[in-house]
Design a protein around this nucleic acid. Structure first.
Length: 180
DNA sequence: GCAGTGATCATA
DNA sequence: ATGATCACTGCC
């Protein structure tokens, strides 16, 4: 059987809300020690541009968030609350800060679920070693499209989690996407 | 409900 | 140099 192709970087070079929604049902692939593991993406959140007060980028470019300003397909990993790694994929045009936080995955057989951004980075071993890299087969970390034959995922959108500090306008936007 | 935990950023 | 904050989790 032919190996599935990684999503092209042009997939990510679109509005972050679109990418966040379409990533649901796609497969996160990790190759380590010659073995590739695949996980179905079940929860995402979009962080969009300069004005989004929930986004790190809303207060301008800094040493930490400059990854968000790079070309789509870059990986942005940062430490939250001193102990949790958060895994994001940069989206949109270069120079425009946007990213999708991967918040949940499940194994393809559905037996294991990691529902929580820090739980999945811990389970999958995703750390700042990937920060600033680009998704690719060479890196050993990439994302594949949902199999065309598989049923179309049922997706719901809700407000994002843990962003009340951003104020109601931005906290209430339905930028979180979930696989039913 | 809230402690843990430390990088990051604004302020000085 | 200091202090507040934080895209969370797990245990009370």
């Amino acid at each position: 059987m032919e190996a599935p192709t990684p999503l092209p970087l042009s997939f990510f070079s679109r509005p972050t809300q679109v990418v966040a929604r379409e990533l649901i049902g796609c497969h996160l692939a990790i190759k380590r020690n010659g073995a590739t593991k695949r996980y179905t993406i079940s929860e995402t959140e979009a962080y969009d541009g300069f004005d989004d007060l929930a986004s790190h980028a809303s207060r301008g470019k800094t040493k930490r968030n400059e990854i968000m300003f790079r070309e789509a397909g870059h990986i942005y990993v940062y430490l939250c609350y001193g102990l949790h790694w958060m895994f994001n994929v940069v989206t949109g045009a270069a120079g425009y800060p946007a990213a999708v936080l991967i918040r949940g995955v499940r194994t393809q057989d559905g037996n294991l679920q990691y529902n929580g951004p820090a739980k999945l980075t811990k389970a999958l071993g995703l750390t700042d070693a990937y920060n600033g890299q680009i998704l690719s087969r060479d890196l050993g970390l990439w994302i594949e499209a949902r199999k065309p034959a598989s049923p179309k995922p049922i997706i719901t959108a809700t407000a994002r989690i843990g962003v009340d500090y951003a104020g109601p306008i931005w906290a209430e936007k339905h930028y979180r996407f979930l696989l039913a």
